[in-house]
Amino acid sequence: MAPLIVLIVVTAVARLAGPIRDGWLDSWPHAVRIGLAAMFALTASAHFFPPRRAALIAMVPTALPAAPALVTANGILEIAGAVGLLIAPVAPASAIFLALLMVAMFPANVRAAGADLGIKSMPLPLRTLVQVLFIGACVVAVF
């Protein structure tokens, strides 16, 4: 739930601050980019620090090798995507990349919910809805 709150609050603050900074933030796509960058910075931190790191490692399907390395790589990709959202020329590509990353990682959430392991912040139907919202925010950030 914390990533959703961060996305909403940071996007709202950025949007309200829009007229202050030469109008750059005076658009929803730009404000959403800031909100997504903050959200992905938060979610990326879970990939590196206990206790969430262990829970994320547990979510990796057993058929995949080197679960700790995959979790670390995913965290690095989230950080890179968050930084990319803040760089105007690459922000649209970063938003698309992050949306695809969320789609690729979603099966781990389904597996975790079914096996009752990993991070259990919300039931799968709600998690699915929130994931759709995050992907929708990435779509908005493309423009």
Rank of each mutant, 00 (worst) to 15 (best):
L16C: 12
L56Q: 01
M1G: 11
A99M: 06
L16Q: 11
G75D: 01
V6W: 01
P50A: 15
A54E: 15
F49L: 14
M122I: 13
G18L: 01
A55S: 13
V130F: 09
G75F: 00
A63T: 13
P89D: 06
I34M: 10
S121Y: 11
F134A: 03
A112M: 04
V6C: 05
I20T: 13
A31F: 04
L77K: 01
A12N: 11
P125T: 10
V140S: 05
A104Y: 05
F48N: 03
M105C: 05
P123C: 09
V103L: 13
L85D: 00
P125E: 10
A31T: 05
R21A: 15
R21Q: 14
A41D: 03
A14S: 11
F40Y: 13
A88Q: 14
L25I: 07
E78P: 02
F97A: 15
G35K: 02
A2V: 15
V10G: 01
A104K: 05
G18V: 01
I5G: 11
L85G: 00
G18M: 04
T128Y: 05
V130Q: 03
I119R: 01
V10H: 01
A99N: 03
F97G: 09
A80C: 13
A115K: 12
M105S: 10
V71K: 00
A14I: 03
P61C: 09
